[in-house]
């Protein structure tokens, strides 16, 4: 068990290096010279060369990468061009805000998904199954950014129940007045994971219920809920894997929903960075979100092998 976990940890190292390489290279495919944006148009070639040397941009790319990687290991993600503050500090605050809506959406979406999927799987082919499957299909197909706008039209414009955007002037606290800001972003984000988890749970449960061991349990006179416990235990690993991926997508994909609701999270930072061509900020947000996704996947893998002994080999 420990050996397999150790091997899995080692396998992450090249992927992490690859991710940092892609983030580094991304900034070089960007059109425009970063030095030109810092200087007035009439700057002399000597000044440009001096500044280029000052930022280390005259060194070969692999050297620049290693220098950048060294800073990265010390937690230095560079300085935002837009705000002049360190990228790491700005990201820290934003990640907390993204985590609030992403984890909230995960809890709600996964609960709905498992509930609907179980009902649909047990009543396979019946009307409950049809409704749950239709719900899952809509959840998979809906563009989140549009769903957010529709919710704003319904609950802010028409009914005037919920605030249309932002976090509220005083940040979050446990008062309904502030928590109201969370309702629509979380609802919008939770639909896709709800749909996907419904599907996988339904398929797994329906498939397991038709297997021989269930028939044997039934023949032994085991009650329905006790059989379901056996089925759930067997269905858990793939469902868990899907949920882990979905949680990562909630963080990484929050940019569209955060843009709709002006939610001050990582995605919001990212879209601002794109608008202002703030390369260090863009690089930092991408890097942190991607690394978070890699470690989340690792965690899910380890959890899975904890549940299912067959996965410990290899």
């Amino acid at each position: 068990m420990l050996r397999a976990a150790g091997l899995r940890l080692l396998a992450v190292i090249p992927i992490v290096l690859g991710v940092t390489m892609i983030c580094f290279v991304l900034m070089f495919v960007a059109p425009g010279d970063p030095i030109q944006t810092l200087l007035p148009d009439n700057a002399s070639p000597e000044v440009i060369a001096l500044l280029r040397h000052h930022y280390g941009l005259d060194r070969p790319l692999p050297v620049q990468y290693l220098v950048w990687l060294g800073h990265l290991l010390q937690g230095d993600l560079g300085t935002s061009i837009g705000t002049g503050r360190p990228v790491a500090g700005e990201l820290g605050a934003a990640i907390g805000n993204t985590a609030i809506i992403a984890i909230g959406a995960a809890i709600i979406g996964f609960s709905i998904g498992i509930g609907c999927g179980l009902l649909a799987g047990v009543h396979r082919g019946g009307w409950i199954d049809r409704i749950a499957s239709a719900f899952a299909l809509c959840g998979l197909s809906v563009p989140q950014y549009w769903l957010g706008i529709v919710l704003v039209i319904l609950f802010s414009v028409t009914l005037n129940w919920l605030p249309a955007m932002g976090m509220g002037p005083r940040g979050l606290s446990w008062h309904w007045q502030e928590l109201r800001n969370l309702v629509m972003p979380i609802a919008t984000l939770s639909l896709i994971p709800a749909g996907i988890v419904t599907r996988i749970t339904r398929d797994r449960v329906a498939e397991l219920l038709r297997q021989d061991f269930v028939r044997t349990l039934r023949a032994q006179g085991l009650a329905g809920h006790a059989i379901l416990r056996h089925v759930l235990k067997n269905a858990a690993p793939p469902i868990l894997a899907v949920m882990g991926l979905q949680l990562g997508y909630l963080f990484g994909g929050s940019i569209l929903v955060e843009t709709v609701f002006n939610w001050p999270g990582v995605g919001f930072l990212m879209s601002n960075a794109i608008l202002r061509r703030d390369q260090p900020m863009l690089q930092g947000t991408i890097l942190v979100l991607a690394l978070g996704f890699v470690f989340l996947n690792l965690l899910v893998d380890l959890l899975q092998s904890g549940i299912d002994p067959r996965m410990r080999r290899g």
Binding site: V19, A30, Y249, G252, G253, A273, L282
Partner: peptide, 17 residues
């Protein structure tokens, strides 16, 4: 390595860059 990025993030990052 490409798999290590969530799809929306990678799409936005690439076209943003």
């Amino acid at each position: 390595v490409f798999y290590a990025f969530p799809s929306v993030l990678l799409a936005v990052a690439l076209s943003g860059a």
